[in-house]
């Protein structure tokens, strides 16, 4: 195993009936001779399922303008069902069909992801007032079972991890997929972490930024939209935690991962 890579697959990459063949072919090449772990998202599919089950989803907005799902107990159960059930098995099945020996894991399996539940969240309510509310079932990852990943990857398995953590009281917790990816990458001391998305990288004034140093990131964050800034925060967290480099790039192109690793695509975040 000469290189370790963690790849985050966004929810939009999972939509549609036809598989994303260029992406899967890249993953397959990465598996051969390298250590690969995959983390997936899929928040939109959770929302769709909740709607089908008649569970209204409440969205909350932070003072900085980030919109997030409010995860109450019932939503946490739907979240677990969709993330660890529907989406994870779909990805594992797809990868298996292409000859990748994928193994599906949630944060519960082998205590892979432990998290502390957030007690309070500060939101901006409908009247524009800042308020603290109960944190619900969201969490911050506190530990990753690195040994489990080492064993699986050492035996040639490709872990496919859903962003569902096990809380301190063994409750299901909704954890951010990008942050989960960073936590996994740091735990296995990955050489690279790749966040696949639907744009070609970090855009500034309509142009892709090819490289960002973590020293200049704060200045840049002031000029970038909320959606991308969560990815940048996660990328910076990974690099500060010892990951060689983080790359934000599109998953909808030919050779999405290999080109990014060879420096031909995306935005690279490094020291």
């Amino acid at each position: 195993m000469n290189m370790r890579v963690v790849v985050k697959i966004g929810g939009d990459l999972l939509k549609g009936d036809a598989p994303n063949v260029p992406l899967i072919e890249d993953l397959k090449e990465l598996v051969e001779g390298r250590g690969l772990a995959i983390v997936h998202g899929g928040g939109d599919l959770v929302t769709e399922m909740a709607k089908r089950l008649g569970k209204e989803q409440r969205f909350i907005v932070s003072p900085e303008g980030f919109k997030s799902r409010y995860t109450d107990r019932e939503t946490a159960e739907i979240y677990a069902m969709v993330m660890a059930g529907e989406i994870n098995t779909k990805i594992v099945g797809l990868l298996q069909s292409f000859g990748i020996n994928a193994i599906g894991l949630s944060g519960f399996d082998g205590g892979l992801l432990r998290a502390e539940r957030k007690e309070r969240l500060v939101i901006v309510d409908e009247q524009g007032r800042k308020r603290a509310i109960e944190g619900g079932y969201t969490g911050k990852i506190t530990s990753v079972n690195t040994r489990l990943l080492e064993i699986l990857m050492g035996e040639g398995y490709t872990p496919v991890i859903s962003p569902l953590a096990m809380g301190m009281k063994f409750e299901p917790l909704n954890v951010d997929g990008d942050r989960t990816t960073s936590a996994v990458a740091k735990a296995i001391r990955a050489d690279a972490v790749i966040y696949l998305t639907d744009v070609e990288g970090v855009l500034l004034d309509g142009k892709i930024v090819p490289k960002i140093s973590i020293v200049e990131v704060d200045e840049l964050l002031k000029r970038i939209g909320a959606g991308m800034s969560t990815k940048i925060h996660a990328a910076v967290d990974a690099v500060r935690g010892g990951v060689g480099r983080a790359i934000i790039t599109s998953g909808f192109v030919e050779r999405p991962i290999l080109d990014a690793l060879e420096g031909r695509r995306g935005t690279v975040i490094s020291l």
């Binding site: 928040g43 799902r69 957030k118 007690e119 309070r120 954890v175 925060h233």
Partner: peptide, 11 residues
């Protein structure tokens, strides 16, 4: 004093 939690509120 308000407890401040990070922005990563899950998926």
């Amino acid at each position: 004093v308000a407890e401040s939690e990070g922005e990563d509120w899950g998926e």
